[in-house]
Computed example of a mutant assay.
Amino acid sequence: MKSTLAFMTLLATALAQSSCTAEPAPSATATAVPNPYTPGYFGVISARSASPIHLLSLTARGGKFYLGGPGPSSYCPVEVVGDACPPGNYTVLAGGDKTLAMGVVVPGGQQAYVAPDGSLSYTQAHSAYIPTDSIIDQFSVDAPEDGQAFGYLHFETGFVACPAGEGQGYQVFGQVSNAIFGPDCLGFSALTVATDEPGAWQY
């Protein structure tokens, strides 16, 4: 509970400091010099002003990522670790220096990747399986600059969110060349908010 409150307080403070008018940031390109900033744990919220996805939290659910909709799917073996279980009610990521991981405690971790259909995805706990032709090495993170509250998480070709069905929010995709996105899909900036603890035992 303590870490949950700390994270939510940090997010609220960051939102209060922001102008809340951010437009999608330019996507990094394949020729960009990698940013040496390597963050620890961080949460992500979307930014696309005057849209239904503006300032929604990125949520890990069922192996995919969403903006809005139900909370994250998480698990912790309480009977084994007891009070050591993280709260599991918000999504935390780690890394961002080419590769991206889930902010979890489970041995072996969980890796994030962009699947062949473009869906931003993550591996199951205790499994390293990633579908063939997935992209695992095109992520980067920019640290906050000039007193700004947020940093940025990038995928080289950008992120897009598409309606996932009633009550399910918007599913997040990487804008890969072989994916077709409808007119109701929206590009967005992924704003990062640092936190000092993992979000779940596993997602």
Rank of each mutant, 00 (worst) to 15 (best):
F159C: 05
P107C: 10
D97E: 08
T91P: 02
P183S: 14
L58Y: 02
P144L: 04
V172R: 05
H126T: 09
F188M: 08
L55G: 06
A60V: 07
I53Q: 01
A84Y: 09
C185A: 04
C76A: 02
E79D: 09
C20R: 15
A149N: 01
G147Q: 00
A164S: 13
A16P: 11
A128P: 04
A125N: 12
T99K: 09
P131H: 10
F173D: 01
F65G: 01
E145K: 14
I180S: 15
S127M: 12
P36Q: 10
A200Q: 05
A6F: 07
P70I: 06
D196P: 00
T195L: 03
C76G: 03
A14D: 13
V193L: 11
P116M: 04
P86Q: 06
Y129D: 11
T132Q: 15
S51D: 06
P87R: 10
A149G: 00
Y113W: 07
G109N: 05
P36L: 02
E79R: 12
F173Y: 15
T123D: 05
A115M: 02
G62P: 01
G95W: 00
P36D: 11
I136W: 01
S140N: 10
I135A: 00
A112L: 07
G165S: 13
K64L: 01
A32G: 10
G95F: 04
S119L: 08
A94C: 04
K64W: 01
T192P: 07
V160T: 10
F150A: 04
V105G: 02
Y129K: 04
D196M: 07
D137V: 05
A112M: 14
G40S: 11
F139T: 00
V81S: 14
A84G: 09
V114S: 07
L153H: 01
A190E: 02
A190S: 12
C20D: 14
T195Y: 09
F65P: 00
T21E: 12
A32P: 07
A179D: 04
G187S: 14
V105F: 01
G40E: 11
Y122A: 03
V44C: 06
G182S: 09
A47T: 14
Y66A: 03
